[in-house]
Amino acid sequence: MNILVCISNVPDTTSKINFIDNDSKFDKNGVQFIINPNDEFGLTKAIWMKDSNNADVTVLTVGDSSADAILRKCLAIGADKAIRIDCEAIDASSVSKEIVEHCNEVKYDLVICGRESIDYNGGLVPGLIAGYLDYNFVTNCVSLNIENGKAKCSREISGGIEVTESDLPLVIGAQKGLVEESDLIIPNMRGIMMARQKPLEVLSAKNIKARAIDKKYFKPQEKAEVKLIKPDELDKLIDLLENEAKVI
């Protein structure tokens, strides 16, 4: 079985969010980049499927050479092969189309993406890929079992869990639950050494036009100082929630 895991290179959660060039660009200066957490849950699941489904795992990102470090990390975690489509990732639509172009050349039975990235939070890439390729799609995926070419997936829905059955090929949007945080694989020295021998292929981009272009960024308004209420003045809290904030 052939699995593609799409990886997004995102700023670590604790990063300071600043904008430069007249507020038209995210300031990468001093920012630590990591594998998007939702993608990492998916990658770990894919690595497990090497044993359970005899899978071959390729990781792919769309970006410039600054993303090579996280691809190497994915290889150290256990992916067999890495691909970088060489261009600046502008929007979900163009990124998805670049991935689709690759999927038309190399057939994958399963495409795993994170349910959303923690930087732009769009949650679009897995659905777009599925739509463009006319594949089945399950997002917010918390369990996946593939046997004899049939996939059984659980999706977290509002207030519960839904189980679906489908044929392959399939695209999933991974999240916590598919594997747990404690299952995430920390690369060991052997993995890191082996990663150096594994292929990291750089493909030229098709230069697909972006559809949604962020023209300007803003920061949220500065938050007013917290209003502290004494523990023995709870009536005051209720009054504020009722009459000032108007939320109860």
Binding site: T13, I17, F19, F26, I118, D119, Y120, N121, G122, R211, A212, I213, D214, K215, K216, Y217, F218, K219, P220
Partner: peptide
């Protein structure tokens, strides 16, 4: 975007 630490003005075509 950026988990509500930012907003963007986005042009859609």
């Amino acid at each position: 975007c950026f988990t509500n630490k930012g907003f963007s003005s986005t042009e859609l075509t």
